[in-house]
Design a protein around this nucleic acid. Structure first.
Length: 647
RNA sequence: GCUGGCGUAGCUCAACCGGUAGAGCGUCGGAUUUGUAAUCCGGAGGUUGUGGGUUCGAGUCCCACCGCCAGCUCCA
């Protein structure tokens, strides 16, 4: 008896396959089927159904992740088939489907050139054309060892498969691979695919091992979906914060200064300034005290905190002090400094929670290949904060942090997700396991109490404690960590932090590290991409640009701009002798929220013709005072839209 | 850091087999005084990332370094 998704059931002969099931339901379904979910597991069409099962047929749908998973997995095999045909001696690594496509890793003596990729793609089309059936076979370990005796990578993988698991191989024409499956019925299914790029990738992701050559590609069921995907990749490039940052003159990095060291130009700095003011207001409202700590500290501080040696590879080398044995370091984090402030005087339970906040520049040596525009830099501006609290206050403090994160994200309309990052490997962490158990449990509890959905990033914690991270995606789909809330029982130990409790005994506080933006660099980068450079009025570097139609209104335009500046607005005047159309175009390209056109009519009536960014038709002529009122309202409310008052 | 690719004017890009650097946009000057996404004319601007080498001659070929891009690794 097979139970179908609609609740109905079907009786089939023993030994019937998934394909039989599909056929028994209808010929259309049989034709559209690529795989099936049987008892929640994705299986081949050719697989035999168990006696009692729930099953649903997976059909060729570009919006079904399972269908795409199967298709792309098969595409990866077709790629490997083509590569094996062209280079018979290549070693075969892994070739999984991934979120937006698939890849396959190959051990080849020479990396693939773009021409090679073209050639491989052509050969892959032949593989698809040949319409090889994907044949699954379950084999014994000994058989498998024999089949892959010439491929050390496969043998290594094979050795890791537990004794209890069945070993299966898939064959498509000339190519045989160790694989769990499932696959589409034949290579002919892979009609719409494209190979995208090739790059080196370490075998098993281990940088100490051999480097394989990875080829990335993508595949869809329809040509429209493939084309749409390729167009989206192009569109994403236009949103890249590195490009927009240049076009809008927001920031730069320069060889003379060094990689990963960002110079904020005036317009980028204006965005930062708004963000700083905003977050400072928010944290002060929530009981934080602002502090400032030095960029440079005696090395002994970082020895005590454990940053030396646990964080050395990310720290700049030490600088000699006055005495031979004195050395200083540039800080990579603020927690040691803030801890010493806590320790600077005896603390009572009445002082807790002590919440310290500092928007601070820290410096981290990041490996050159990891740097990326504003998203990965070597001088980071953290909106850092440390909460020293009693154990029983942890949960509510974390809850407040989560609330703050939510306020910030919601205000900006950013989409994000939470991850709980647990303890890293033994050699990369400090403190007893019991401490880690407590800390991880506390974070779990807080997330549950806040009723938030979250993933778990095993081993992703900091060396001193586990954390809750917020992650967002950039324009090209890469995920970046933003806000972070970290729970730490270790640094208070190391700094011997204490407070006197109500019971007149000494107690150890718990330390919560948290950053809401994360860093202003990354956050601004994410915002640039999020808004495509079209910042809402409250954040826009230039909120309005006044355009006199002719020289005759130039002085009036200046006067209007002055009136706006006095109100605290960021205004420019464009009185160049170019046509109005030209200057409007410029303002649009610079993503200025409001263009204020001033002609004779406006001068006479003390009005401006308001053109909102991206709005061609609806324009209104309103008094300068009304414009001030409207803009003020938008700025105050941190409105995300432009031009609502035009309606 | 690793693998590969790339580096020409502020930006986007051109320069056949090695023959001595060019266009558009921008900028500057002039004309134009414009009613909602590109007005016209003219000028300036480059030690071709840096340093070596090969060659009669290098943007072009070779080596090293620097930087950027993609991926891997690592992380806010």
């Amino acid at each position: 008896m097979i139970t179908l998704p609609d609740g109905s059931s079907k009786a089939l002969q023993a030994g019937s396959t998934v394909a039989d099931l599909a056929a028994s339901i209808g010929p259309g379904l049989a034709k559209a089927a690529v795989a099936a979910r049987v008892n929640e597991r994705l299986v081949d069409l050719s697989s035999v159904l168990p006696d009692d099962a729930t099953a649903s047929i997976v059909t060729r749908q570009d919006d079904d992740p399972d269908a795409l998973y199967v298709l792309r997995h098969s595409a990866a095999h077709a790629l490997a088939t083509a590569v094996r045909e062209l280079y018979p001696d290549v070693g075969i690594g892994f070739g999984p489907p991934i979120e937006e496509g698939f890849y396959y890793d190959f051990a080849v003596p020479e990396p693939f050139t773009p021409e090679d990729i073209d050639m491989i793609e052509s050969r892959m089309r032949e593989v698809v054309e040949a319409d090889h059936l994907f044949k699954r076979r379950e084999v014994t370990r000994e058989e498998a060892e024999l089949l892959f005796s010439d491929d050390p990578l496969k043998l290594e993988r094979l050795a890791e498969i537990p004794e209890t698991e069945t070993i299966s191989v898939y064959e498509d024409g000339p190519f045989l691979d160790l694989c769990r499956g499932p696959h589409a019925p034949s290579t002919g299914e892979i009609k719409h695919f494209k190979l995208l790029n090739a790059a080196g990738a370490y075998w098993r992701g281990d940088e100490n091992r051999q480097m394989l050559q990875r080829i990335y590609g993508t595949a869809f069921f329809t040509s429209q979906a493939l084309d749409q995907h390729l167009v989206r990749l192009e569109e994403a490039k236009k949103r890249d914060h590195r490009k927009i940052g240049k076009d809008l003159d927001l920031f730069s990095t320069q060889d003379d200064i060094g990689p990963g060291l960002v110079c904020w130009h005036p317009k980028g700095a204006r965005i930062q300034l708004q963000l700083r003011r905003w977050i400072e207001d928010l944290v002060i409202e929530r009981g934080y005290d602002v502090v400032y700590t030095p960029h440079l500290s005696n090395e002994t501080l970082f020895r005590r905190s454990g940053h030396l040696p646990n964080y050395t590879e990310n720290m700049y080398p030490s600088m000699r002090g006055e005495n031979e044995d004195e050395a200083f370091r540039i800080k990579p984090m603020n927690c040691p400094g803030h801890s010493t402030i806590f320790a600077a005087q005896p603390r009572s339970y009445r002082d807790l929670p002590l919440r310290l906040s500092e928007i601070a520049n820290v410096y981290r040596y990041e490996r050159s290949g990891t740097l990326h525009g504003l998203l990965r830099v070597r001088m980071l501006t953290m909106d850092d904060g440390h909460v020293f609290c009693a154990p029983e206050q942890v949960e509510s403090e974390i809850f407040t942090c989560l609330e703050l994160v939510d306020t910030v994200m919601t205000t900006l309309g950013l989409s994000y997700r939470f991850d709980l990052s647990t303890r890293p490997d033994d050699d990369k962490r400090i403190g007893d396991d019991s401490i880690w158990d407590r800390a991880e449990e506390a974070l779990h509890d807080a997330l549950k109490r806040a009723e938030l959905e979250y993933g778990v990033d095993e081993g992703g914690g900091a060396f001193y404690g586990p954390k809750i991270d917020v992650k967002y995606k950039d324009a090209i789909g890469r995920e970046w960590q933003g806000a972070t809330i970290q729970l730490d029982f270790n640094l208070p130990e190391r700094f011997e932090l204490e407070y006197i409790g109500r019971d007149n005994q000494r107690h150890r506080p718990v330390l919560i590290h948290r950053a809401i933006f994360g860093t202003l660099e990354r956050f601004t980068g994410v915002l640039i991409e999020h808004f495509s450079g079209a910042f809402p009025p409250w954040l826009a570097p230039v909120q309005s640009r006044v355009l006199p139609i002719t020289d005759a209104q130039s002085a009036a335009a200046q006067a209007i701009a002055e009136r706006l500046k006095v109100q605290g607005f960021r205004v420019e005047v464009d009185a160049r002798s170019d046509t109005l159309g030209y200057r409007i175009r410029e303002a649009e390209l610079q993503k200025v929220p409001y263009v204020l056109v001033v002609g004779d009519r406006e001068v006479e009536t003390d009005t401006v013709a308001v053109r909102a960014r991206g709005v061609k038709e609806k324009q209104i002529v309103i008094s300068v005072d009304d414009f001030v009122t409207h803009l003020n309202e938008q700025v105050e409310s941190k409105s995300l839209s432009t031009g609502t008052f035009l309606d």
